Amino acid sequence: MKVAIVGATGYGGIELIRLLRQHRHVSELSVFSSSQAGTNYDDIYPHVQDIYQGVLKSVDAHQLADEYDVIFVSAPPGVAAELMEYLIDGQAKVIDLSGDFRLLDGSIYEDWYGRPAAKSSLVEKAVYGLSEWNREEIEKAKLIANPGCYPTAVLLGLAPLANDNVIDTSTLIIDAKSGTTGAGKNPSEMTHFAEMNDSLKVYKVNQHKHTPEIEQQLEQWIGTKEPITFTPHLVPMSRGIMATMYAKVSDSLTKTKVEQIYRDAYEKTPFVRINSSRYPATKEVYGSNFTNISYHLDERTGRITVISVIDNLVKGAAGQAIQNMNLMQGFEETEGLWAMPVYP
């Protein structure tokens, strides 16, 4: 395959290159940037010297549509929405990591993202790429809305319970913590070393743009729309997300039943690992496409606590995007991704 990455200079872009370089079905890998066209890629990321020697190209939608089999868009919101008007009729399949096509209601997108929504005709053609839970639709899709990093961790943790309708989502509280790469490559006061080191920060309390994405998917599973409480934090590490979810459960739910629900949901999925006897740490998935999940049913309070950890740049972005590409193209789902986490 000939594969293109639009917006290749960010952390999502370099992670796509790291993984796609070891993908057996990728014969050509090209990188595109609107702001740094003509620059050697290893001048931006010296660690790829003698490994990947691409030169950043200008973005030409018509060229992309006609010359490539798969296009990853890892650019700021709005870029994919504009490009897709030209790409939708071309040969290329498109996987958007930005969020332009995740929300079905354009007015909700505009409220939370603060910018115009993509055309509804394009959004309607997009498939939400939560790989483990939407496999059949992904296999037939031309356009994938790759999930956000926080929603990936949260939804994979909650999906078995939501699908079995054993949690009360009106009581759901989500506490999530991310490494600073989740804020992107451009430096800010919030992610400056002197501000972030030896510190823990809460941000965008009840205002994070991933909130409606989580609500939308939960609504599709349980059939009713419930607002959630979602609080994100930044922690002084580069990679990783830990999402801790709390919710009231059905009176009849037992620890044995919870174990069965999770095992049935994920026993045939290569990248989700369940361990009810030990709580996960972000270091256990570092640099990998795995999701580690654990849980505890508190019979005293009638609540369940679910803990889910991912690498935000891999399962939360580039890895899941490649997993979706594998499903779309009919490849082995693990191709290019079956690597052990980096430890310690």
Rank of each mutant, 00 (worst) to 15 (best):
R102F: 07
S35G: 06
G12P: 08
I307V: 06
V205S: 13
S294K: 07
A145C: 05
D175N: 13
V31L: 09
A126G: 06
L97V: 09
S121T: 12
Q260Y: 12
N324R: 05
V73Y: 06
A118G: 11
M242K: 10
P280A: 05
C149Q: 11
D251V: 02
K225N: 12
E85R: 14
I51A: 14
T256M: 08
I307K: 10
H23M: 13
S294V: 00
I222V: 15
A153K: 01
H192A: 14
A159Y: 01
V314M: 09
D111H: 12
Q91N: 12
A4R: 00
A80G: 04
F331G: 07
A194V: 10
E195N: 15
G90K: 07
V3P: 01
H62Q: 09
N324S: 12
L297H: 02
Q36L: 14
W133N: 13
N275T: 11
T334S: 05
Y11T: 11
G287K: 05
L56Q: 01
D251W: 01
N292Y: 09
K2H: 10
F193Y: 15
G316R: 03
T269L: 13
V48H: 08
I214M: 12
I322H: 06
R115V: 11
L29G: 04
Q320T: 14
N275M: 13
Q53W: 10
V70R: 02
E82C: 09
D69V: 08
G13V: 01
L172I: 07
A92M: 06
D96E: 11
A117Y: 06
S294Q: 09
I310A: 08
H233E: 04
K225W: 12
N163Q: 13
Q320C: 13
D198A: 15
E67S: 02
F271C: 01
G316Y: 00
D69H: 15
F72W: 05
G99D: 00
S238W: 13
Y86G: 08
R18F: 13
L172N: 00
A92I: 00
Y86H: 15
S34K: 10
S277W: 04
H296D: 15
G182V: 00
Y286N: 14
G148Q: 01
L297V: 08
K248P: 14
A61S: 14
V306G: 02
K93H: 02
E332L: 05
M196Q: 09
S288Y: 05
G148V: 01
T269S: 14
Y45C: 11
N324V: 05
S30H: 11
D175W: 04
L253K: 01
A318N: 07
S131I: 05
V59N: 10
V6H: 06
S288Q: 04
K315F: 01
I304F: 03
T211A: 02
I14R: 08
S121M: 09
V154Y: 03
